[in-house]
């Protein structure tokens, strides 16, 4: 017995000889331990998201930085998914590309499984239902923004739990159909033999805007205004001033929302050293996904910089 608890009960080398590691599986013997990402390499900066009356606006610039080097200037960080949802990526660009491939294969798998489409979908659209939302019915069975966010957050959480994180902070935007107002198992008793006329397929609940965040730790949250990275410090206060809560978001028009987000992109360009003046902006609403990938910052002017006298006590 000695002072090393891990030695108790184990064979001593001076009696039995050293342990022969060659019996171990080759992967364990004399190779380096597996290593995982310790820090991101090529990175994208903030992603902004803002809900409005009937959709969501998403924006991110087209820059991929290598440390402080502006390495790639045409990297699109807003990735549409199956016509219904868009994912905005901040953080490591290679991990973004991995996730994008993962989402593409998920989309393909969903389309093959038959759950996503029916035969009519391939031909002409089914006749519009009474409430004129026939066009929407067409794709209603495919994964929506909420399904996608749940899936992505599970992927991110799994990878962080394996100590092999995907170094991203993402926003998922789109529309989702809320659950039925009153969860119901029909209480109508057998006595109730009122022969109600069969209604149409689903009494369509109106899809509502959806915006949610997920990051490399698996942390998730949702809010009418969201931003990753530097945007959380600089853009969120501006957006929250216009949209303090869900009620305010429900009154905001598309034009107003786009204007606020554009203003935030400008502030971010002025103040975030890892940003650039060309960005992607995406509006997702009932009509679909409207993605513009090469927006130039409007009215760029550094005139304000003249007046900056430094920070702290400097006044002249």
């Amino acid at each position: 017995m000695n002072h090393l608890p891990q030695a108790w009960g184990r064979p001593r080398d001076d009696i039995y000889g050293a342990y022969d590691h060659s019996y171990l599986p080759q992967t364990h013997a004399n190779t380096h331990p597996t290593t995982h990402t310790q820090s991101p390499v090529v990175t994208g900066t903030s992603v902004l998201g803002l809900k409005f009356k009937d959709g969501v606006v998403l924006a991110a610039d087209n820059l991929a930085s290598y440390g402080s080097l502006a390495r790639f200037t045409d990297v699109k960080r807003l990735k549409p998914f199956n016509r219904k949802a868009v994912v905005g990526f901040g953080g490591d660009v290679s991990d973004m590309q991995y996730l994008d491939r993962l989402l593409n294969s998920l989309d393909v798998q969903e389309n093959y499984s038959g759950a996503a489409t029916t035969e009519e979908d391939d031909g002409e659209a089914p006749a519009a239902t009474a409430d004129g939302e026939g066009g929407e019915d067409k794709h209603k069975a495919i994964l929506d923004a909420k399904n996608l966010h749940t899936y992505l957050s599970k992927v991110l959480y799994k990878r962080r739990s394996d100590f092999n994180p995907l170094w991203n902070a993402i926003l998922v935007a789109g529309l989702t159909t809320p659950p039925p107002p009153a969860p119901s198992t029909s209480t109508s008793s057998p006595k109730d033999t009122t022969t109600s006329k069969p209604t149409g397929p689903a009494p369509s609940r109106k899809p509502i805007p959806y915006l949610a965040y997920a990051d490399l730790l698996g942390t998730t949250y949702s809010s009418p205004t969201l931003a990753t990275g530097f945007g959380a410090h600089l853009a969120v206060p501006i957006m929250r001033r216009a949209v303090p809560d869900e009620a305010a978001a429900a009154k905001l028009s598309r034009e107003e929302a786009v204007e606020i987000v554009k203003k935030c992109m400008k502030v971010l360009f002025y103040r975030d050293a890892r940003s650039m003046n060309e960005y992607s902006l995406c509006v997702i609403d009932g009509k679909g996904v409207d993605l513009q990938e090469n927006i130039k910052l409007e009215g760029e002017s550094w005139a304000f910089a003249e007046g900056i006298k430094g920070y702290g006590t400097q006044t002249v």
Binding site: N147, T150, K154
Partner: peptide, 10 residues
């Protein structure tokens, strides 16, 4: 994983 009821065809 998806927060959705599994489709019956699936």
């Amino acid at each position: 994983t998806y927060d959705r009821p599994i489709p019956l065809s699936e």
